[in-house]
Structure formats: structure tokens, C-alpha cells
Amino acid sequence: MPSETRLGFPNLGLGVGLRHVHFSHILETWPNVDWFEIISENFMDSQGRPRDILDQVAERYPVVMHGVSLSIGSTDPLNHDYLLKLKKLAGEINAVWVSDHVCWTGVAGKNSHDLLPIPFNEESLSHIVQRIKTVQEVLERPLVLENPSSYITFQDSTMSEWEFISRMSEEADCGLLLDVNNVYVSAYNHEFDPYEFLQSLPHERVVQFHLAGHLNCGTHCIDTHDGRVIDEVWALYKKAHELTGGVSTLLEWDANIPSFDEMHAEVLKARDFLAEKEVEELNTSDQTATDQTNSVPHPINYYVGSEAE
């Protein structure tokens, strides 16, 4: 598929998230991984070791910036200080693209540090489209937005999530980060057909896929990023690949993080699934849990590494 259909963004291959527990391994081995994704907020203010390591990584690998604090759906004003820092970091590390989520994280000056859902209606669509345009003007590049996992819907919604996201991306002329695991989790929680979600998107706007593990609590799923990708999600990934022609794919693993090699091997399974090969250690079911109170949706996304000698 020509790169123009991806807002000019290339297919980077199969990447993994840059996580602090792997810093030493990466510096020692410079692993043969296609690309890295960073959590923007973990690096945008760092003037210490995290930033030094990012600079070294960015010299050797394509790097994509993935944020969790843009709060594009919030009714609070956009934080221009944050946007300028985002733009500065993107320029300094030559980020291939910048992404965040279709969500809001706080209102009235507060930040929940969660990816909170928005109602899918005309008011929120108009609001978010206008803000995406503003952000793209500031960043001077297309914004790429991800469908988050969600645990509630609103009576105020007047359209499906996929209709909302499709219209949003067309009207704002932005890219999409299709998190296949999030589609599965939200479909489970809200009882819709995940394949209808995939089928209905403007596929030419999908710039990137996310894969991750989640926790199945029986009554609902929680997007925990703490394990392997289950077969049902791999099946959705395969369908998404067919529909889009294939785009950059990244595995998120943010809790109970295994060794770098094990994490990398998980995303490399994508090649086997797409080639319809038999994959060892197939995950035939979700992780299950009876106690959901300790399960935190999606990553903490926070690096504390200060040590003293």
C-alpha cells in the first residue's frame, strides 16, 4: 500500500515499548528490533538518565512518541506548555509520529492520569475535531489517535465508537492507532461485535496497531498490559492486517514485564500469525481473575529510577 495512504508514515515493522527495566539490556546488546515506542511523558521533562538513553536509542532505531496526557477530549483548555514540550521532544529525537488517545484525562484543572471515555455524540465530536486541528497546527504534523479500552458507555452517546472515530479522523484529518486489544476489551465490556468495529474504520487512516494482554474478570475485561496476547486478539489483528494492508505494529507490556527477549518474541509472533504458521505456546484463553480490585487498567507509565550512592 502506498505510504501516502498512511499520512506519509512508513510501515516500521514490529516494535516494542521502550521500558526502563530493559534500559541496560538495550544499551548492552542493541537488539535487532525494528522500532521503539516511548511514553512521551516519561521523557519530555527528563534531563537525566532516561533522556540520555532515549537519545542513544533514537540514534539507532526509529522512535514513535505515544502520550497519555494530551487529554484531547477534555473540556479544559489545551495545555500549550505541554504541547510545546511534546513538539520539542519530537523534533529532538526525530520521532516518526506522535500519538495519544481518544479520551480525556481530567477536567477543572485536575488530572486523573486515566484514559477516561467520552460520550460519542455530535457535541463531543465537534469539540474533539476542533482540538485535534489545533494540536496538529501546533505540532506541525498529523496527530495519531488510539481507541482506548473502556469500561463504561454513556446514555448521551448517539453513535457507535467506530462511527465516532471514523468521522473524527476524516473531519480532523488525523491518523489512527488501532489498538486491537482495546477493541477486544471494549467489545467484551460493551457487548458489540469487534469485527464490525474493525470493518467500519477508514482503513487508509490506520497508521499503527497496538497489541497487548489483558485480564478477563468474567463480567468484564481490564486492559492491564501485563501478559501475552490472546488468540482472539491475534485473530482480530490478522483481520485488521487484511483490511489495512498491514501497518507498523507494537506490543505493549507494562506490568509484570518479562525479559526483553521474551517481550520481543511476543510481537514477533505477528509474523507467524500473518503467515498462518503454528505458533508455540498459544494463548487459548484470557488471563482470568476473581479479584478485580487490584487490577489497574493500562500502564502506570511512570519511571522512577532515582538511586543514590
Binding site: H113, Q155, T219, H220
Partner: peptide, 25 residues
């Protein structure tokens, strides 16, 4: 009237996923 339930989970329990996560995180 604000947050619909699913066939598996009532509305309060759904919102509690966010409530529990807020402090835990």
C-alpha cells in the same frame, strides 16, 4: 440514566473499575 449496565455488570460496578484504578494507580 447516565451509564448503562451491560448484561454482565451493573452500572456502579462498571464505574468502579475507574474508581478503584484511580487510587490504586
Amino acid at each position: 440514566s447516565v451509564v448503562p449496565a451491560s448484561s454482565q455488570l451493573d452500572s456502579i460496578s462498571k464505574i468502579e473499575v475507574y474508581g478503584n484504578a484511580y487510587y490504586a494507580r
